[in-house]
Amino acid sequence: MSQQVRGVVSLAKGAPVSVETIIVPDPGPGEAVVKIQACGVCHTDLHYREGGINDDFPFLLGHEAAGVVESVGEGVTDVTPGDFVILNWRAVCGSCRACLRGRPQYCFNTHNASQSMTLEDGTKLSPALGIGAFIEKTLVAAGQCTKVNPAVRPAVAGLLGCGVMAGLGAALNTGTVGRDDTVAVIGCGGVGNAAIAGARLAGARTIIAVDVDDTKLQWATEFGATHTVNSKATDAVEAIQALTGGFGADLVVDAVGRPETYRTAFYARDLAGTVVLVGVPNPEMKLELPLADVFGRGGSLKSSWYGDCLPGRDFPTMVDLHLQGRLPLEKFVSETIALDGVEEAFAKMKTGQVLRSVVVL
């Protein structure tokens, strides 16, 4: 039988979110119902609420989640009831051109649950990133459930479902940071600080954090930044070059995603260095660079989507590294809140008061 649970819904563009009664159907073939234990409040959820993703309202928000599988549908064998899982929005298909080439991290046909969750009146909900996890129980494709060590705290584990994995992966997977490399990260919110943590984990020699907020720069030092630059007061390109022997960084991660931050990243890298864009630009933004500079500086200009991660490979590894004391995921959790605290968490996010608010159920 279907279940009635509480969940956080964005009913209209820009309107405050509300806690509504949601109907969750029994899992069908290839699906699972997961009892959510914790879910981080990500900027992407705010983008959905403000109409920045699409206009398929109403949205069931939340996607950085961990919980326990309650039930599974026909044909599901990879997870069973009782498994502790992190939810992911890259349930790879295994048969598209990327998967068949051995590049499943670029899967072009990721899948979600076939059935819809609804409001009490039958209105279908659009789950954020195909998950919808600001809710007591959610329906997902079973492939969106990644089993990890249950010894990890749910409030910590769930953050790997999106922002923290995006930052870690931008450094480790896309940027391929190596031992003794020099790294600069522009933007020290959750994603940027995760990139800093990833660079430290990989053994980078110099890690330069760049932001306009001194509080965020202080956070960056706690995640492993060896130097900080307030770009409101100092030219970031000159500062990064000065801290890298005049050359520029081997890798520069743009965790903001604006034309001005991307230009800074481009000119702050060493010759043949790498730029990784992981901050999400809005559709109106345009970038202009002299083509001669793009050619003459060589190197790589990359975009990192979900940190180029494979959830089944990366989530368990990151959890194990955390449990070993090598990856301080707990530092990302600024506060824990209830379901009815999401709107206030959005306000704190906008003003930069928190790295992550986490809904705990």
Rank of each mutant, 00 (worst) to 15 (best):
V148D: 07
N149M: 13
N149H: 13
N149F: 14
A151D: 15
A151R: 15
V152I: 15
P154T: 07
P154I: 07
P154G: 08
P154E: 06
V156I: 15
A157H: 07
G158K: 03
G158A: 10
G158P: 10
L159N: 11
L159G: 10
L159M: 15
G163V: 03
V164G: 09
G167E: 05
L168S: 03
L168Y: 10
A170E: 00
N173E: 08
G178K: 09
A184N: 00
V185E: 03
I186K: 04
I186T: 01
C188M: 13
C188L: 08
G189D: 09
G189Y: 02
G189S: 11
G190P: 13
V191F: 08
G192F: 09
A194L: 12
A195N: 01
A195P: 03
I196K: 02
I196Y: 06
R200H: 13
R200S: 13
L201T: 05
A202Y: 04
G203M: 06
G203V: 03
G203I: 01
R205N: 13
I207A: 04
I207F: 05
I207P: 07
I208A: 03
V210E: 06
V210A: 09
V210Y: 02
D211A: 13
V212S: 06
D214H: 09
T215R: 12
T215G: 12
K216V: 13
L217T: 06
L217S: 07
L217E: 06
L217R: 02
Q218V: 02
W219N: 09
E222R: 10
F223T: 01
F223P: 07
T226S: 15
T226Q: 07
T226L: 11
T226N: 11
H227N: 15
T228R: 07
T228E: 08
N230L: 13
T234P: 01
D235K: 05
V237W: 02
E238N: 14
Q241S: 12
G246Y: 11
G246F: 14
F247T: 06
F247M: 15
G248T: 03
D250H: 08
D250T: 04
D250R: 03
L251C: 09
D254I: 06
D254F: 04
V256E: 02
R258I: 15
T261G: 05
T264I: 11
A265E: 00
Y267E: 13
Y267I: 10
Y267D: 10
A268P: 10
R269H: 09
A272G: 00
V275Q: 05
V275Y: 00
L277D: 06
V280I: 15
V280G: 07
N282I: 13
P283T: 10
E284T: 15
K286W: 00
L287T: 09
E288Y: 14
L289A: 11
A292F: 12
